[in-house]
Design a binder for these strands. Structure first.
Lengths: 112, 112
DNA sequence: CGTGTAAGGAATTCTGACACG
DNA sequence: CGTGTAAGGAATTCTGACACG
């Protein structure tokens, strides 16, 4: 996935009515999940909410969990946890790469 | 670019006001280019136009050409020409692949 | 040809609030 | 807590048309 594509997923350009159609959620629900900090739409000049495709995916996850009876507070915790996991995974990858580079460098030195 | 990403670029979910902001074109211009068949937004149940990111890219190309004084008829021709080129390119790729497969097959036969 | 604009109507979106369970 | 709903106002979008160069 290149930069260009990423920008599409992230770009907040979809209005709430369309999001409602795409997710099957009511306007009320979508706005409420925002109130509970589960999503953060962009607001244009005159306050209209704009969502990205990522927001839509998040909303669909939320919908599934709500159907299973999970409360918004719990969903928020889960989302934050996953965020932390992604961060630490990225950290691990960075360290592994550094380790490999060091190994390479040492092999190079041994040969001289 | 996987299927998932493609669907984002192609999905017609952006309303004309947002497209106007993103492209710098007026509503009038955007609707006119549709009249001239340069773009084909989706229409939802009650007739509201919905555009994709691809449509937006196309509109930006159109804007550039219009600035250079190219008429919409010419732009339409250019777009159709490019479409044909893409088709024939795909055709060539398919033939090349077929050729390679045949070659492979023949080599296999020679060995037996 | 390409674009602006005023016109009238219909649908969208927003907020704050009351309701219910 | 999560969601529905009615309320009032502001902005959006649509179409068909006249205007201009």
């Amino acid at each position: 996935m290149n930069h260009q594509d990423r920008s599409y997923k992230d770009k907040k350009v979809i209005s709430i009515g369309t999001v409602s159609e795409l997710t099957g959620l009511t306007l009320r629900q979508i706005r409420y999940y925002e109130e509970r900090k589960l999503i953060a739409p962009y607001r244009n000049e005159r306050g209209t909410r704009k969502y990205s495709f990522i927001d839509i995916e998040t909303l669909m996850d939320i919908a599934d969990k709500r159907e299973d009876g999970v409360q918004t507070t719990e969903i928020l915790k889960e989302m934050k946890l996953k965020e932390k996991q992604r961060e630490s995974d990225a950290e691990v990858r960075k360290k592994m790469l550094r380790g490999q580079l060091n190994a390479q460098f040492n092999i190079g030195r041994e040969r001289n």
